[in-house]
Design a protein around this nucleic acid. Structure first.
Lengths: 125, 125
DNA sequence: CATCATCTACTATAACTCTAGTAGGAGGCG
DNA sequence: CGCCTCCTACTAGAGTTATAGTAGATGATG
């Protein structure tokens, strides 16, 4: 299953993932860009139409909640990126990722540790 | 600088990165989806307008070549992904990447080796 | 030379994205 | 009760994306 958001939809999803279910007003407050109330509402309605969020009534307002996990969205995006930009090779992606000049030694070490753990528990296949 | 492609533009860029400069007909042949000749031409013209490809005459046709490296596009995309979906944390991204059940032990080992090398040559900061 | 295939340039259009306005309901307050 | 505020529903319009058709040039071929 393919999960894909437009830029603005992703901004809104990020708020829901980060802070949990929220009303239109709450989402609006947390967005970096100043958008009209109705604009945020429209984005949420679009997301709902696509099945990415749901809502339940709370007083006279709605509280929206994500219907897809951030993990699932991340995985889908990573897969698409790997396929389209890194010839399907996760290693190539990693190469690019760690070539980033901005990474600290600590980050790199934590990343290696991550791989160690993963290798430790991985089944042979 | 921010490099961003639409889905279809990315398909076309992928062909140019993979196989080098190509004519409209050549790009068209290599695309997975069957598109009209003029459709491919339009995409290439759009890419050119955006500065992502250039062309030079070859016989009566044009040969298009990428003006941005795949690396640069990959880095830009990875940065955007990290920021928007992984709270700015490359480790989180890696976690997601290696949680993919489809990775073989060999791939994981090569990835660890990659990090080892990177750590070996990394400057302290 | 006349015709055919191929190529670019220009035009078109439906769908989607982004943003926001207007209308109307519903609750709270003086 | 009448008004103000906040909320959703519906509508709207500019811009972008995706796809492709038509027109006209140009080189190849019989």
């Amino acid at each position: 299953m393919d999960i894909a958001f437009t830029d603005r939809e992703l901004d809104v999803m990020a708020v829901l993932w980060e802070h949990g279910p929220a009303t239109v007003a709450e989402v609006r407050e947390r967005l970096a860009d100043p958008l009209a109330y109705t604009t945020v509402l429209t984005v949420l309605r679009t997301l709902e139409e696509k099945g990415y969020v749901g809502h339940e009534a709370e007083g006279k307002a709605y509280r929206y909640y994500p219907r897809v996990a951030r993990d699932a969205a991340g995985e889908s995006a990573l897969r698409r990126l790997t396929r389209k930009l890194f010839r399907g090779s996760p290693e190539l992606l990693l190469t690019q990722l760690v070539s980033d000049r901005g990474l600290t030694r600590e980050e790199l070490e934590r990343m290696r540790r991550l791989l160690d753990e993963r290798l430790g528990t991985a089944e042979e296949r």
